[in-house]
Design a protein around this nucleic acid. Structure first.
Length: 313
DNA sequence: AAGGGCCTCAACCGCTATAGA
DNA sequence: CTCTATAGCGGTTGAGGCCCT
């Protein structure tokens, strides 16, 4: 793409802003409102490029910006959202009133990342460092208290939140509507006739994950699925959360489909805590075989999962 | 007091996405 | 449909302050 460089013109000032420049920018924006950044500097009497003006306003001068130290609650939210979304600073910032993406990014890089490392937690995967070593294998634990469907959902989510396919999953989780089957990143095999059902599964899982995000944000201090040290626990979704998901999703048809996916053998969503475990040994065997894979490849996993759709769901 | 290293964070850079002509 | 301008994003840089020797 051919672009006109925005800051290469002669006479354009760079570097730290002076109080006088700030005043000019504030005065202009209070009068005219935001927008028209390209022509703003000339109109406002500033020798800056429009982009610089926009950033100065967005990151520093905007009246709704909250300044000062981050609270422990904000720390908690950032860590949890980072675990879900990765380095999507703008997306994280939308959940923290008055904080900018730049501020959160800086705070993460200078404080939170170090703090997690000191606690022995990998700031990328949000797993204990000694569990993300060279082997890439995860400890095998089978939570007997989970329903089979919840476990399947949890383990798929857990698996793909930490490896090279993280972007695909987190992209879906944060609400991008791109489907797995449509995603051009997923090799040239998009025409596979078996892809659609798995895509539907993963998309529904992702929609459920979006519902979970709202639960997380609204209830950060007690959100299950995360341990106290802010790393992911073995399970992303508790049965209680999955029940909550049904109450957070508007589309009745979707809820019915989601129930089918999560209920593992036909248990009612409302009764999911007591749902019987059906096909659990097959499912566990299938997932364990994937846990032993060194190369975690989503495309490969999807193909395998597809063949099991009728078995597990 | 000096100066070297480290840390923080505002600002910049390069890129993609999107809207509109 | 193509091209261009603009907005927005994430990664990186560097000035200035702080701390330690």
């Amino acid at each position: 793409m051919v672009r006109t460089p925005c800051c290469k013109e002669e006479g354009i000032k760079k570097g730290a802003w002076t109080p006088e420049e700030d005043q000019k920018l504030i005065a202009y924006l209070q009068l005219r409102g935001e927008g028209g950044w390209r022509t703003l500097p000339e109109k406002a009497g500033l020798k800056r490029c429009g982009k610089s003006c926009r950033l100065r306003w967005a990151n520093y001068l905007r009246p709704d910006i909250k300044r000062g130290e981050f609270t422990p609650e904000e720390d908690d939210i950032i860590i949890k959202l980072h675990a879900l979304k990765g380095n999507k600073w703008a997306a994280i910032a939308t959940c923290l009133a008055g904080r900018t993406d730049n501020e959160i990014k800086n705070y993460w890089n200078t404080n939170l990342k170090k703090r997690l490392k000191q606690k022995g937690i990998d700031p990328v995967s949000h797993k204990p460092i000694n569990s993300t070593d060279q082997t890439g294998s995860e400890p095998k634990k089978h939570k007997l208290g989970s329903s089979g469907s919840a476990r399947l959902l949890n383990r798929v989510a857990s698996k793909y939140s930490v490896d090279s396919n993280r972007d695909i999953l987190t992209g879906i989780i944060i609400g991008n509507s791109t489907t797995i089957g449509d995603d051009s990143q997923n090799s040239g095999d998009v025409d596979s006739p078996t892809k659609n059902s798995t895509s539907a599964l993963l998309n529904k899982m992702a929609a459920a994950s979006s519902a979970r995000t709202s639960i997380l944000i609204n209830n950060t201090s007690t959100s299950p699925g995360f341990s106290d040290n802010c790393s992911f626990s073995d399970e992303f979704f508790s049965n209680e959360e999955i029940s909550d998901m049904y109450m957070n999703v508007d589309d009745v048809g979707f809820i019915e489909e989601l129930k089918g996916i999560l209920s593992c053998g036909g248990a009612d969503a409302g009764d999911i805590k007591d749902s019987p475990e059906v096909n659990v040994s097959d499912e566990m065997h299938f997932l364990d075989s994937w846990n032993e894979e060194d190369d975690l490849d989503l495309e490969k996993f999807v193909s395998s999962l597809d063949s099991k759709i009728g078995v597990f769901i």
